[in-house]
Design a protein around this nucleic acid. Structure first.
Lengths: 231, 231
DNA sequence: GTGCACTAATCTGTATACAGCTTGATCTTA
DNA sequence: TAAGATCAAGCTGTATACAGATTAGTGCAC
């Protein structure tokens, strides 16, 4: 589970594009799971040595990470893991909330047994975490699985791409807020969301799935707003 | 007006990032205004010679163009100006229609006299084209100005970014359809849209602006669907 | 002490030679 | 003749040395 150790010995048969994908995924996960926290300066040279390659392909990966909004490349300074200002954060959640509601409206997909199996597993994993108080990392992992499932239930391709883009931009920032909300509120909220989404899925109500997600994103914003006022 | 001649002699005081932006904008416009038609293979070497630089910065520009969905980089083959399949095209317009309606709902901006001056100029330019039958290129230029104005009226930053991304992906494909729709339908449709948007703007009805745009995107889809059935 | 110019360190950007990938033409062979 | 192997051409990807950009520290002038 430790993303820092995700670098396997080089496979001699690995093609250039496969290696690129592997390194990109590795660095993206490190950023999204906060192994590289916002503000961290990433070094092309250090990473090139870690992966046993030159700076060139690392630069390509950095470029893609910048497009995804995960790092900012500053000439003469370095490549910095992005933070996000509160206004942009709120605006992004506003938009994500609207997009979630569209999931079932634009090019809806049929819910298959495979999809149901996945939500069942996600629900089971969530329930197992009930007694694991304070394990926000594990909760974030499950939330990530849920997001992947919802992406697969999004039939409209551009909508799926945009949803994914916005998710990766802000999800990790959201994770940093979790501890101050307290375990009970966070856990019960996520458990309820998974149950509601599952309930909508079993009756093939893809529109309802999107609405549950939309309501939950609204709940997150409300939670955040309340905390900000308290502080 | 000829984008092919947009390459000015190098300014000695131009910084690296300014040069990057200039080359990116130049190639983006060539693609979006169909100087490079879908399927065209772009050569790093040729473009590097044209701009008097090496392949390296051209590769960076290609990377950004690929992220924007304007080209596809294929190792060992070349960098190809993307075409778009009809399903993705329709899905993109579905999404754009919904996003347009959100423009005035999420973080609405105040309409300033500067904005009004711009829509007045756009309206004037559109009216001047009435007798210029068949000049679809000029009409596309004005439509591009209108799009820029609408982007500036979008207060929600992520929404603006996503709207811009989707616009650049499909607008040029739309242009290729215009001639077969006929001048009158295209021209009158665009003129009406500009007038309706202006009417909403003068009463500071940003919500109405978004709705006009949304309706117009629906009109485009309907027009396309009718033509496809006829063919 | 304070402000400014300069320098050094360190980062990303660029140029260029070479390696890897893909495709189509050509040659070989059944 | 036709199927398959081989090769050459042309493209992008990579490695590496060097240039440009930024920043922090240093020392000088005031």
């Amino acid at each position: 589970m430790n993303v820092q150790e995700a670098v396997k010995p080089r496979d001699k048969d690995e093609s250039q594009s496969e290696r690129f994908d592997r390194i990109y995924s590795t660095l993206r996960d490190r950023i999204c799971l906060l192994a590289y926290r916002p503000g961290t300066i990433l070094s092309e040279v250090v990473l090139a040595e870690e992966f046993g390659i030159s700076r060139t392909p690392i630069k390509r990966v950095f470029n893609k990470l910048e497009f995804m909004g995960l790092v900012q490349i500053k000439n003469g300074v370095g490549t910095i893991v992005t933070d996000i200002d509160l206004l942009t954060f709120k605006e992004t959640y506003d938009l994500r909330k609207r997009l979630a509601a569209m999931m079932g409206e634009l090019s809806p997909v049929e819910i298959t047994p495979a999809h149901l199996a996945r939500i069942d597993r996600i629900l089971a994993e969530t329930e197992m975490l009930r007694t694991d108080r304070g394990n926000f990392d594990a909760l974030a992992f499950v939330a990530n699985d849920l997001q992947q499932l919802l992406l697969d239930l999004t039939g409209n391709t551009p909508l799926r791409e945009v949803t994914e883009l916005l998710y990766y931009r802000v999800a990790r920032i959201w994770y940093t807020f979790l501890p101050q909300f307290g375990w009970d509120i966070v856990y019960e909220g996520q458990l309820k969301e998974v149950r509601d989404i599952r309930a909508a899925m079993v009756v093939n109500d893809i529109l309802g799935v999107g609405q549950v997600r939309s309501v939950d994103l609204q709940r997150m914003m409300t939670l955040l707003g309340r905390t900000m006022v308290d502080a």
